[in-house]
C-alpha cells in the first residue's frame, strides 16, 4: 500500500516503442525464416534492435537507481514484476508437463487398444479396440515408446522412427556414468553457490560474493555443456531426435526449453557478476542480482521436476 508522497513516474521514453519494433521485427523475421526458402536476415535485424534496446533500457534503470530516485515503493513494483514473470514462466512449463502426462498416461493406451472402460473395469473401450485394429494394428503402448505407431503399421516406410534407446534411468550399477545425474548435481550445486553469494553480499563481503557468483556462472555454463553433450549423444548414437515420435518430441521440448531458460538465467547471473565486479549492489540494495538468483532457483526447481518425471520415471 502506498505510504509516501512521491512515486517516480519516468519521463517519456523512446525505448518501449523501439522494443516493440524489435519484437515485431523478430516475430515477422522468425516466421519468414521457418517457411521453406526463407532467410534469417529480418530476424537477426530484429534481434539486434532488441539487444540494443535491452542494453539501453537496463542502463537507464540502473542509472535511475544509482541516482537514488527509485523509492522503496517503486522497488517493490519491480519485485512484484519479477514474481509474476516467474509465475508466467512456470505456467509455460505446466503446459508441457501437462502434455507429457496426457500423451503418456492417456493417449498411449487409447492408440494401443488398452484404454479401460472405467477405473474398476479394465475391459478396453470400443474406441480403443477400433484404434488398435483399424488404425494402428501392432502398436504396443509402452513408455518410453521405442516403436512409434507409424512404424508398427508402415515399418521401414514410416515417417516417425523411434529411438534405439531412451534416456531413462539405467539402473543403480550404471548410475555414475549417467549424465542426467551429473546435470542434476551441477545444477543443485549452483543453486547452493548462488545462495552463498547472496549471503556474502548481505554480510557486505563483496569479494566472497563475486567469487561465489562467478562459480555459479561457471556451473551454469558447465550444465549447458553437459546438456549439449547429451543431445549430441542422443542424435548420433541413440537415434533419439525430434522426429522420433512422441518420446523425442516431449524429451527435447521439455529439456530444450529448460536449457533455454538456463541460458537466459546464466546470462542474467553473468550480468550480475560483471556488475558486481564494477562495484554495483550494496548490502541492502541489490535487486538486480536477487531477481537473477530467484530465476536461477526457479530453473533449478523445474530441472528437479524434469529429472524425476522425464529421466527417473521416464
Amino acid at each position: 500500500m502506498s505510504t509516501e508522497g512521491s512515486y517516480y513516474v519516468p519521463e517519456q521514453s523512446k525505448l518501449p516503442l523501439l522494443a516493440a519494433l524489435g519484437i515485431g521485427t523478430m516475430a515477422f523475421g522468425a516466421a519468414s525464416w521457418v517457411i521453406e526458402g526463407g532467410t534469417s536476415t529480418v530476424f537477426l535485424i530484429g534481434t539486434a534492435i532488441m539487444a540494443a534496446v535491452m542494453y539501453k533500457w537496463w542502463s537507464v534503470v540502473i542509472e535511475e537507481n544509482t541516482q537514488g530516485i527509485v523509492s522503496d515503493q517503486l522497488k517493490y513494483s519491480y519485485v512484484l514484476g519479477m514474481y509474476w514473470f516467474i509465475f508466467s514462466e512456470l505456467m509455460f512449463f505446466v503446459c508441457f508437463f501437462g502434455s507429457l502426462f496426457y500423451v503418456r498416461v492417456l493417449v498411449g493406451p487409447w492408440i494401443g487398444g488398452e484404454a479401460a472402460i472405467g477405473l474398476f473395469d479394465d475391459t478396453p473401450t470400443d474406441a480403443a479396440i477400433a484404434n488398435a485394429t483399424h488404425l494402428w494394428s501392432g502398436y504396443d503402448a509402452t513408455w518410453p515408446p521405442l516403436v512409434t505407431p507409424d512404424q508398427a503399421v508402415n515399418a521401414g516406410a514410416a515417417k516417425f522412427i523411434g529411438p534405439q534407446e531412451a534416456m531413462s534411468f539405467p539402473g543403480w550399477t550404471q548410475m555414475l556414468s549417467w549424465l542426467p545425474l551429473w546435470n542434476t548435481i551441477v545444477l543443485i550445486t549452483s543453486s547452493g553457490t548462488v545462495h552463498v553469494a547472496h549471503h556474502a553480499l548481505k554480510e557486505g563481503n563483496r569479494k566472497k560474493f563475486v567469487r561465489w557468483l562467478g562459480l555459479t556462472v561457471l556451473l551454469g555454463v558447465f550444465f549447458l555443456f553437459l546438456q549439449a553433450e547429451e543431445y549430441i549423444h542422443a542424435y548420433q548414437e541413440l537415434g533419439l531426435t525430434l522426429d522420433s515420435g512422441i518420446y523425442g518430441t516431449t524429451f527435447f521440448l521439455l529439456t530444450g526449453f529448460h536449457g533455454a531458460h538456463v541460458t537466459l538465467g546464466t546470462i542474467m547471473l553473468l550480468i550480475a557478476f560483471l556488475r558486481g565486479l564494477k562495484g554495483h549492489f550494496s548490502e541492502s540494495d541489490h535487486f538486480g542480482f536477487e531477481a537473477a538468483a530467484w530465476y536461477w532457483h526457479f530453473v533449478d526447481v523445474i530441472w528437479i521436476g524434469l529429472f524425476i518425471i522425464v529421466y527417473v520415471l521416464g
Binding site: V103, V107, T148, P149, D150, F160, G245, I246, G248, T249
Partner: peptide, 10 residues
C-alpha cells in the same frame, strides 16, 4: 515433432 500426430504417438 509429433505432438498432434497419432502416427508418432501424439
Amino acid at each position: 515433432t509429433s505432438f498432434f500426430d497419432a502416427a508418432g504417438g501424439g
